[in-house]
């Protein structure tokens, strides 16, 4: 037990270096986020957003579409059954 353990293991250097690296990484992330709104027009001009991708997620639209198809199918089966029984 003692300060000697820290110095022998290079603890102060390790702690300082580690903290600095964490800060550098997160400062860079922070700078990237700050610059992102300025980068967006460039990205949008290179890769314009697809019409279908606005608002509703494809997964949701797929399930909504399949639900609509299912309803139509059930209605058609119901109608066919009704006609069949009438005859």
């Amino acid at each position: 037990m003692g300060l000697e353990n820290i110095t022998r293991a290079g603890g102060f250097g390790l702690a300082l270096t580690g903290m600095t690296i964490v800060f550098i990484a997160l400062v860079l992330v922070s700078l990237f986020i700050a610059g992102l709104p300025r980068l967006l027009p460039l990205v949008n001009s290179l890769l314009p957003e697809l019409e279908g991708h606005h608002g509703v997620t494809p997964a949701a639209s797929t399930s909504a579409a399949s639900a609509a198809v299912e309803e139509e199918l059930i209605a058609a089966i119901g109608y066919a059954l009704h006609v069949h029984r009438d005859h």
Binding site: M1, N5, I6, G10, G11, F12, L14, A15, L16, G18
Partner: peptide, 14 residues
């Protein structure tokens, strides 16, 4: 990192 120093002080390996 301060806890790392504390643990080193108490004799734990790096």
């Amino acid at each position: 990192f301060l806890t790392l120093l504390g643990a080193l002080y108490l004799g734990f390996s790096p």
